[in-house]
């Protein structure tokens, strides 16, 4: 079913025109990488504050309110350019192992962030100024750091579509 969806998108005239435009994909990829630095760089410092690795003398809520507005701008650009890249070449991404790994990791960081904001963050008043946050918050920080690294790594590996496990190739998604 997923394959049909990707094939359906690939047949769109706008997908075709973006795919065949001289520099459209190049601009999207360049903006995607630049905004990735913005998002992962700022989230990285937020996560490191939670994990107790950086900015320890600054209140957790101040780090959040100070870094999140620009981070969300970067996230918006990153998401739009990422969607456009897949939209332009859906059948290039569909059989790509690293693409699906990246998507899986994005789900994990989203769930981790949602869990943090809906549960752990509710008690932030009690540990806002603590240089070392409670264990749950630190774990959330470390999980986010690890998976953001994974997102960057798998994102880079998308270009190496041949360097994948044999079992993935055996699925025959590319044929």
């Amino acid at each position: 079913m997923l394959r049909e969806l990707f094939e359906w998108v690939e047949a769109f005239p706008s997908s075709l025109s973006l795919r065949e435009s001289l520099n459209g994909y190049v601009y999207c990829l360049t903006a995607h990488v630049a905004s990735m630095g913005l998002v992962a760089g700022l989230i990285g410092f937020w996560d490191m504050r939670l994990a107790g690795l950086a900015l320890r003398g600054i209140r957790v809520t101040k780090v959040q309110s100070g870094l999140f507005p620009l981070m969300f701008v970067g996230l918006g650009i990153n998401a739009i350019t990422g969607i456009l890249m897949v939209y332009a070449q859906p059948m290039r991404y569909y059989p790509n192992f690293w693409f699906w790994m990246k998507m899986g990791m994005l789900v994990v960081v989203a769930v981790n962030a949602a869990y943090f904001h809906m549960n752990i963050e509710k008690s932030v008043d009690k540990w806002d100024s603590d240089p070392i946050a409670p264990l749950q918050a630190r774990v959330a920080g470390y999980v986010s750091l690890a998976f953001w690294f994974g997102i960057i790594a798998t994102g880079r590996m998308v270009a190496y579509s041949g360097l994948v496990p044999q079992w993935w190739l055996d699925l025959g998604l590319g044929s």
């Binding site: 992962a40 760089g41 790594a153």
Partner: peptide, 14 residues
């Protein structure tokens, strides 16, 4: 290299 780019950009931006 790319992961470190993110850390570097974050350090510059802060």
């Amino acid at each position: 290299h790319l992961s470190t780019v993110a850390l570097f950009i974050g350090s510059v931006l802060v």
